[in-house]
Design a protein around this nucleic acid. Structure first.
Lengths: 122, 122
DNA sequence: CCGATACCCGTGCGGTCGTCCGGGTGTAGC
DNA sequence: GCTACACCCGGACGACCGCACGGGTATCGG
């Protein structure tokens, strides 16, 4: 793969090799992050984190987004196992899954908001 | 946008509206996450987090990836302001930017690895 | 000074993602 | 039963992304 035959710093390369996650793990990680890396999905998660249960229509109202966009976002989130739906009559209520990964809620939702607000990144 | 005229639970909608990040903030957040949501870029960041300085060729060796792929990843990371390059002779060394967001390093890198390992997500 | 090295950059292609549109399913009210 | 409603689903379109390729630049060894 790599073109040059002589590593510049073999020691560091070896050390890095042992600490870098495998490609499969990296792919799995990327899949999780990809789910969060979408404005609609992220806002859906924030809304559900705030009020813990909402139906599709109300969710669209709260986000000021089309019902289709919200529906698709919920489908993806459900596929990733992050939300559950409860059907009451003809209305479907969504909420964060019971064992919603705390690190995600804590950091990737809350902390990341402050991050994007506070640091323009030079 | 929303099709139905009558919110099912107006109170919750109102509460959610105040807590959901604005669309611009959500987009900014998504952009940051999108940078991390790629196997190659994530592994590059991990490698640099481990040994703090590597040239492009050695990085390709450590990740067992093509030099082009690594070069592109570094280009994107540099564009996002997450890595810096130091040119010494004809070799270019990369490292995490000085004020690398600690939340990212702490959680989105380290914690997320454990998360993807430990939970298959039902 | 000349060739090789290490890397950058612009371009193009295949694949994937997000959204919109039409039609369908099941429920509630008359 | 029949209409209206809330939502789901499939396909289709447009946009974007990641990577490979070719050509270019600066540097070192001889």
């Amino acid at each position: 793969m790599a073109d040059h035959a002589h590593p510049v710093d073999a020691d560091r390369v070896a050390r890095a090799k042992t600490r870098v996650p495998s490609r499969e793990d990296a792919v799995a990680m990327a899949e999780v992050l990809t789910v969060l890396a979408d404005p609609t999905r992220a806002r859906v998660l924030h809304a559900l984190d705030a009020v813990e249960e909402l139906c599709v229509g109300d969710l669209a109202l709260a986000l000021d987004a089309s019902e289709d966009a919200v529906g698709y976002a919920l489908r993806v989130l459900r596929g990733a196992g992050l939300v559950t739906n409860r059907k009451q009559g003809r209305v479907v209520f969504y909420r964060l899954v019971a064992g919603f990964p705390e690190p995600l809620r804590e950091h990737c939702l809350r902390a990341l908001v402050d991050l994007t607000r506070g640091e323009p990144a030079p």
